[in-house]
Design a protein around this nucleic acid. Structure first.
Lengths: 343, 343
DNA sequence: CATACGGCTGTTAGCGGTAACATAGCGCAT
DNA sequence: ATGCGCTATGTTACCGCTAACAGCCGTATG
């Protein structure tokens, strides 16, 4: 019923306004609003009422400066548009939720320079921790992270040297594993289709591992095709067509991600090609999308949710006793789906 | 060659450290690092060199408190997992890039309470502006936004009352428009398939507009089906099967988003159903994914990139002369694709 | 009755920068 | 020589909040 005593909107509200409105010191107001220290019930009520009716929103900038504590965790990822990082983020948010920590996302578009800038900007807010995708950074970025004096977790990949902690899978091993499964199923003329991204180190490492395993079996890639930009599903379709026209004797297509793999699968089905009889297919990531396809594409899930969770746990200090520097390797499972012949 | 004089890593670096290392006052260092005010070239060089070799990263918390200026823009969206918001974000980032402003994303999962919390948290960092998806918020959230004294832009939707500015499309009109096109093509037994999300107000408004237009033509929805959770593509497939089994005489399926529409399309094609002859299909959003499908699903693009750009322009103050309170309506275009009969 | 103690509240001194103003040196017209 | 205007730099006073400590009061204790 009482009209809220809207304050002069020109001036920004401070603790002092609340303190005056409730007749106690600023310090007591601060204590009430942070639930810290002893305050009598009566005072607490009065302060909360005053704060609410004024519409007071605390100034975390001042608070952070005074307390030298910031409840922010920087998360630096290359992209938001491919379903993999949103899921990592979900794992992070979920785990951070009940720690009072809040993730702040920065996107680099796979550019090392952009990454350096984003990291610099984030560190300038003095976050409580940083989660950064990948192990490859500019020298300056590594130095900044190392000097920051906060927990750093590099995620997704463990094939390399971490600044501090790392949580991820071995992409090299993942590529190797997939190659072994393919070879075991009897395929021999194998092609690779991927993105043209010199900075997608994880895709590169998968391909490396893949080729290593082929070599061990006395094989080499029969063909390869790369793309950049555009609708991944469409590109998968187009690249598949191009490769099959160019190398009609191909019997397996290994895609660097599920989306282009799905495009390829749709193409093959539309062409009436016998999958997995005449041609086998496999992707990477284990995205949910695949469940809706007419046939289940072989893939390997990248433990995205789990990576996010573990990284967040490290930042939140849930691994008590350790002092950073831990490397957690996760192991993706191969889902054979319906696009690889049963061995 | 010179080993970088790594500072005592226990203490955090401040302007004073740089000032001592370069023999000038803190103020001069501050000026150099912000490129503000006149500093001689020699001094600037010396300061930059000192800052670099120390690995100094400015403390924006202190800077923001002192200058009462924060280069952050809060962006509050319901989800990251459906491709639509990442694209809005892309538009925002792109436009903000050369303004010195930086977007900070918060996700609400379509929960009004969560949204309120996220808005509160963001405002407590005193951002320069806020971009919030949708027009429906808790009363407290609206009040906070209104009192914040910064530009607020509500995006995606304009069917309702904005706190300050708004950029979006009329979802009611979009639904109406699609219904009209469907009716004009001769379809009469029309079903709706959508998500079970009481808080997805935009989907609700589209359905409202859709039904209005049906009513005007003397029609009503012949059937409807809702889902929640899981792979949208798969759900689209399953719901389509369910609806077609239940109501075999249906001749059009209107989906609340492209992903379930794509699932439906794949199902129909797999069943050998004549699309768009026997059954027509349409979705909503105009996502890139559709380009890779065997047939192009009819849809309406939601102007996502443009919405992000315009919202960012308002925040960045590029609409000089106006003092907030502007509402920008964008007009989505209907892309008939190959799943509606040519009238 | 003095003493100790715990609950509650207030005071003081920064946190690390920046705005605003003050100052020092210099070239140059008068 | 004088004084003006300009550039380059320094000084002072906060920004809004919190850590640390100090004080007050009532009650339990010896």
């Amino acid at each position: 019923m009482t009209k809220p005593p809207v304050h002069d909107p020109r001036r920004t509200l401070t603790l002092r306004d609340v303190s005056e409105a409730s007749g106690v010191s600023e310090m007591t107001v601060s204590r009430v609003l942070r639930n810290r220290g002893d305050v009598s019930v009566a005072t607490r009520e009065r302060v909360l009422e005053a704060a609410r009716s004024l519409g007071y929103v605390p100034n975390k900038i001042a608070g952070a400066l005074a307390s030298q504590r910031v409840n922010l965790v920087g998360v630096v990822i290359p992209s938001l548009s491919n379903m993999v990082f949103p899921e990592v983020l979900a794992g992070i948010s979920e785990t951070l939720e009940d720690t009072g920590l809040q993730p702040v996302v920065g996107v680099t578009n796979y550019s090392p320079e952009r990454e350096e800038t984003v990291i610099y900007e984030m560190l300038s807010w003095r976050p409580s921790g940083m989660i950064v995708a990948g192990l490859e950074h500019t020298e300056a970025a590594r130095a900044m992270l190392a000097q920051a004096g906060i927990p750093i977790v590099e995620i997704m990949d463990i094939d390399g040297e971490a600044v501090d902690s790392a949580v991820g899978i071995s992409h090299r091993r993942a590529g190797r594993q997939m190659a072994e499964a393919i070879i075991a199923s009897g395929y021999r003329r194998i092609a690779f289709l991927g993105t043209m991204m010199p900075h997608d180190h994880r895709a590169r490492k998968r391909l490396q591992g893949f080729e290593e395993a082929l070599a061990k079996a006395g094989l080499t890639l029969a063909d390869q095709e790369f793309y950049s930009g555009g609708s991944a599903l469409l590109k998968g379709r187009e690249m598949t067509e191009a490769v099959l026209k160019r190398s009609p004797d191909i019997d397996f297509l290994y895609y660097s991600n599920d989306m282009i793999g799905a495009g390829g699968l749709l193409y093959c089905l539309a062409q009436g090609i016998d999958v997995p009889g005449k041609i086998g297919l496999a992707g990477f990531n284990g995205v949910e999308l695949l469940d809706g396809l007419p046939r289940r594409l072989a893939t390997m899930d990248a433990c995205r949710l789990e990576i996010g969770r573990r990284a967040a746990e490290i930042i939140a200090g849930k691994h008590a006793g350790t002092i950073g520097g831990e490397v957690i390797e996760l192991f993706p499972t191969l889902q054979a789906g319906d696009t690889i012949r049963r061995a």
